[in-house]
Each structure stands twice: as structure tokens, then as C-alpha cells.
Design a protein around this nucleic acid. Structure first.
Lengths: 121, 121
DNA sequence: GATATATTTCAATCTACATTGAATTATATT
DNA sequence: AATATAATTCAATGTAGATTGAAATATATC
């Protein structure tokens, strides 16, 4: 896997690795939410919710839309495309089919590869 | 999703979110590796490799086995069961099917739900 | 026993970043 | 214009954890 792809994946995982932020992402995975709803159900202060939503937005995982009649109300939702891309990246990276029998290129000298793998396994 | 499940998932993502550690996990996803191989290919010092491998082991994602003829050599590999469990947890959490049309329970007063969703969308 | 080898562990240092509390911004109502 | 509302941003603080360099551990060889 290319260095950049590893970096990108790590960056995305870093966006989701915080328990508070993941707890916010979860209800978003069910459907549209607004700050006050998230705050009420998760018992988190509004400004912290806002902060985490900003991080999720900057990562492209969610988007925001203001209410058409009162712009103070903002509704957040998952970005389907970003979600699917993330699923693909994770699926590829964690694909069990990648795993092949393999002999490390190092080890004790003068021992055959077959001997090496046997043992106290 | 249960609070504990969110916490557990966050913990696992935290294990994988570091670029260096993810860079180590990648070759492991291809097959057995030993410390010196990882160090050489990733240009990382041995002790740092060891540290990250410890974190991955403690998370249950990889296991270690010593060479049968010379115990100084240690081979690391992915734990298939843990890998599959992680894939399932991520797949469930990020399942697009979870997303349903939804009206937030808040918003401007005296505006019907239908009116609300229309607008500059 | 001395030396070499592969790895692991330890601890100091530094960076990243979540959280808290305050302030600000934008919008709506009176 | 004053007041209220919903959300956002700012900055200080404290914690978590990666990295570095040194030391320790375990094993093998002579």
C-alpha cells in the first residue's frame, strides 16, 4: 500500500477514534441530526458538539445544511460518498484474502524454511 | 449502539490510527513478518517497531511466535479471528442501510416538518 | 565466561488534541 | 435597538501517546 494511502487512512481513522466523536457519528449514521439533539442525547455541551462536528465536516464525512426558515438551525448528515469510500478503503486494507503463507527473509542461518515454521506452534 | 460498543470500537481505531503503526500493520496484512524485516522495509528503528508491535498485540490484533530453533527470532502475524471481528464491527457501524430519512425533533416553532426539509437544499 | 545477536522494555521529551469556559457570530423576535 | 436564541469559534489547560536514546532481557556462539 502506498505511503500516502496509509497516511490518508490513518488520518480518517484518527477522526473516528475519539469516543466522544464516534458517539456523535453514531446517531448521524441513523439519520439527520442537529446540534441540540446530539447534545441532549449524548449529554455533551453544545460547543463541544460543534467542535467535533467541525472535525467531521473538515474530514468530509458529514455535511451541514441550515433550516430554510430559520438559519439558526443547522442539520447535519453523513456524506454518502465519503462513507462508501471509507468502507472500500477499510475493506481493502483489512481484506483477509491479502494474507498469504509467507516465510520471513530472516531467521537463523543454516536452517531450512520448512524446519523453521514447524515447532512449538 | 451501546456506549461500551462505541468505546471498544474507538479503542480499536485508536490502535490503527497512527501512521507508523498502520504502516507496520500493512505488511502484516500480507503475511508473517519479523521485527528486522519491518524495520528494514519501513526504515524504522527496532525498538520503535517493538513498541508498536506490543500495542498491536495488546489489542489482540496480532500474535507472536518464536522461531523453533533460535528463540531470538520472533515472527508476527495477524490474528484472523480478531481481524474478522473488526471487519464485522466496522461493517455494522458504517452500514449505509442504517441511514433513514429523519426529521430532527427540534427546529423553528410553528413550521411543519415538510416545510422544514424543503428549501435551499 | 565473554561476546554477539534479536528483541524488548524503560523513561524522558515533545507534540497532538480533547475539554472547558468564555467570547463571538449570525439570526430571529419584540 | 434591545433582547433572545442556536451555533460557532477561541484559547488555556491537561492528558494521551509517539519517538528517541539508553538499558535490560533472553538466547546463541565461541
Amino acid at each position: 500500500m502506498a505511503k500516502q494511502a496509509v497516511q490518508d487512512l490513518a488520518n480518517t481513522l484518527k477522526v473516528l477514534d475519539d469516543p466522544s466523536r464516534l458517539a456523535i457519528f453514531d446517531p448521524l449514521m441513523r439519520g439527520v441530526q442537529c446540534n441540540c439533539e446530539l447534545g441532549a442525547s449524548l449529554q455533551m455541551p453544545m460547543n463541544l458538539i460543534s467542535h467535533h462536528l467541525r472535525v467531521l465536516r473538515d474530514a468530509g464525512l458529514i455535511n451541514a445544511r441550515r433550516d430554510s426558515t430559520d438559519a439558526r438551525w443547522v442539520y447535519y448528515s453523513i456524506t454518502p460518498r465519503a462513507l462508501n469510500q471509507l468502507r472500500e478503503r477499510l475493506g481493502s486494507f483489512l481484506d483477509p484474502q491479502r494474507i498469504q503463507p509467507r516465510q520471513p527473509s530472516c531467521g537463523p542461518r543454516g536452517v531450512s524454511a520448512k524446519m523453521r515454521i514447524m515447532g512449538r506452534g
